[in-house]
Amino acid sequence: MSGLRLRLKSAPAGRLDLSCLQPDPLTARTADEVARLPFEDGTLGDLFEITAIADANTLILAGPTSACDGIGDGLASGTLVVEGDVGQYAGRFMKGGRLDIRGSAGDYLGAGMKRGLLTVAGSAGNFVGGLLPGEKFGMAGGVIRVGGDIGDRAGDRMRRGTIVVKGKTGAAAGSRMAGGTIWAEGGFGPGAGPLMRRGTLIGPKAEQMLATFSDCGEHDMVFLRLISRFVAAELGSLAPPPLPVKVRRYAGDMATIGKGELLLTG
């Protein structure tokens, strides 16, 4: 099984749903076969210039824009590399494999993700690892790493999994969070953790900390070593430096059951 490179011939005029582009079924076919596959009113060949590459089970998508939605939606295996920006819902409901976005991403990046690794070189929009209206839970596993900043309400109703952000988060990160970890190297924007029940927020600072987060003091917790090692193993050179030995622990949101935590490393 080799790989494929799909280069968008021209920027789409409107929004384009590319959720059908998955490494696993496509890379089992030749470039010509893929070009003949139906897509919207024509074929994939009408939209993309398709060439074979040596990398096994790898799909490279070149030239997409922020109008291209659903890239890597439900990705279960293989590697999907995006050379450009992506729109909404990238990596939504991912079940495995790896999605590397070498540009920036729109809203709902990795929403409802279950397994796998999702990296974004640039920034990402709102509701990273969150959920869409009508759904019960957000991210339930896997790792998301964003090289820039992320928007508001990252990890909304997140249950499990790890989000690592090199920059800072927008407002209300970890809203309604039920588990999992958000590690923001640049810190948290205003009001992190509203209605957070469980889960862990880690960063050097938090703007306008909610009054419903209670100071529990400075501690050296073994689990900090575990997450540092886990993230280093998952992300390699993209991983942040290991966490300090001690962090300041704030428990919250005490407006709910208060079993979540905000750990300040600064």
Partner: peptide, 17 residues
């Protein structure tokens, strides 16, 4: 806390966890 395929428990005790 679940990291990858491994799940850990943090139990509060008098010297930390």
């Amino acid at each position: 806390k679940r990291f990858g395929g491994r799940r850990f428990w943090r139990v509060p005790v008098m010297d930390g966890e």
